[in-house]
Design a protein around this nucleic acid. Sequence first.
DNA 1: GAGACTTGTCGTGATACAGA
DNA 2: TCTGTATCACGACAAGTCTC
Length: 429
Amino acid sequence: MTDLSRLRDVLRGAKRSGATPMLAPQTPSVDLEAFAAVLGGALEDGPSGPCPVVRWWCGGDAGDAPYGDQLGAASSTISAAGLRALCGSGHEGEPPWSDSDPRSGLLFFDLETTGLSGGSGTVAFVVGFGCFVGSRFHVWQFVLPSFATERRLLAAVTAAVSRAHTLVTFNGKSFDVPFMEMRWLYQRLETPLPALRHVDLLHPARRLWGPETGGLGGLEHRVLGFRRDDDVPGFEIPARYFDYLRSGNPRPLRGVLAHNQLDLVSLGVLTGMACDLVDRGALATGSARQSLGLGRLYARGGREAEALGCYERAVALTSGARRTSKVDAVAVRAEALYRLALACRRQRRHSDAARYWQTLIDLGRRPTGVFEREALRALAVHHEHRLKDPEGALTFARRAYTVEYTAGRRREVQRRLTRLERRLANETN
DNA sequence: GAGACTTGTCGTGATACAGA
DNA sequence: TCTGTATCACGACAAGTCTC
C-alpha cells in the first residue's frame, strides 16, 4: 500500500467517525478584494463565502484569440459521437451528451498546484474551468488567497461542477482528478467528481498525434502550430505561489493564470479537432500513423468496421514502405497489418488474415518484434490446419523457432515442429 | 472418445509518460 | 519527485474443434 493510499484510508475512517476537520476554517488574513483585483478578477459569492474568481473570454469578438479560426472551428466540431470515442471504456449507462448540443454540460478542467506529490501540504491554488459558449471560449478560475480558505474554494468548485456532466482534462485521470478528490477528502467534504464522465485527452491525443506528444505544450506546437511566448514553465509555478505567500504580492500569479487559461483553450481546441477526426473517419486522417491511431480509438469503442477501414488506409498510405524505407513508415505498416490480421482472424476470415500475415513477413523487417513473431506462428497454424500443407507449415515453424526467445513460446513451437516432422516422416514411409 | 490443438480472454508485471 | 494510466509481453485457463 502506498503512503497516499494509507492516508486516504485514514481520512475516510476519520470522516466516517465524525472527527473534526484537521484544518478548521479560519478567517483569511489577506484583503480578498485587493487580491482579486490585482489578478484582474473579482470576489464572487460561493456556498461557503466569497471567493476570488478571474474570468476571461476568447474567440468571437471578445478578448484574445490565441488560435484564431481554430477556436470557432473546434466549437462546432465537438460531437456526441466524438466524445463517446474519446471517453473510451469503463462508463456504464447512457452517455450524457446530447446530439443537438454536445457542448452543453461539458467542462474543461485544469489545476495549478503547489507541487506534484499530492501530499497533505500540497494544494491547488488555481482551479480553472473552461466551456464553449457559441463560438467563444469562457474561462473562469478560482484562486486560493491562503491555505485557510481552501474549504471555501472547494465548496465553490463543487457548485461549479454540479451543473456539468463531463470533465475534459489532460492527464486528469492520473493527476487533476485524484488530486482534487484528495483535497475534498482532506477537508471532510463530499467529492462531486465520481458522478461525472471524464474524458482524459492525453491518451487519445497520443494515438492521434503520435506517442511523443511532448505534453500539452508539445501538442500545441506540433498540432496547432502555436508557440507560447513568456509562458511560465511548470516547474516555476509552485515557487511563484510560495513567493506570494511570503511577500503578500499576488502580481507574479498573473503569469500562472495566463498559463492555466492557455492550457484550457488548447484543451478545448484539441478536443474539437479530435472529435472532428472521429466523425470524419479514415479519409480525414493526414498520415498513416494517424489512421492507425484512429483505428485503435474506434476498436476500443467497439467500432470494428471503422477500425478496419483505418488500418486499411494506414496500409495503403505506406504501400511503398520496405525495410530500407523510413523506420516510422515500416513500423506503422507492420502494426496496421498485424491489427488487420487479428481482426480478420476474429471474424474467421482466415484466408484474409493469412494474406495480411504474409504481407507483414514480406516487409522484410527482422522478425524479432511481436508482430513478425505472431505472423510466423499464425502462418504455421494456417498452413498446417487449413491449407493441409505440412511442408509449408514446417518452414514457418522453423523460422518461428529461431525468433522465439521465451521458454514457453519456444516449447510451443517445438511441439509443432515435432508433430509436423513426424507427420511428414509417416507420409514418406 | 480421449487427448491435442486453436482461439480468445483475463490477470500480472514491467515500462514509459504525463501532470506542477 | 510521485502516482495513475495505457500499453505490451507473457502465462494460465476455458471453450470449442479437430485428430488419431
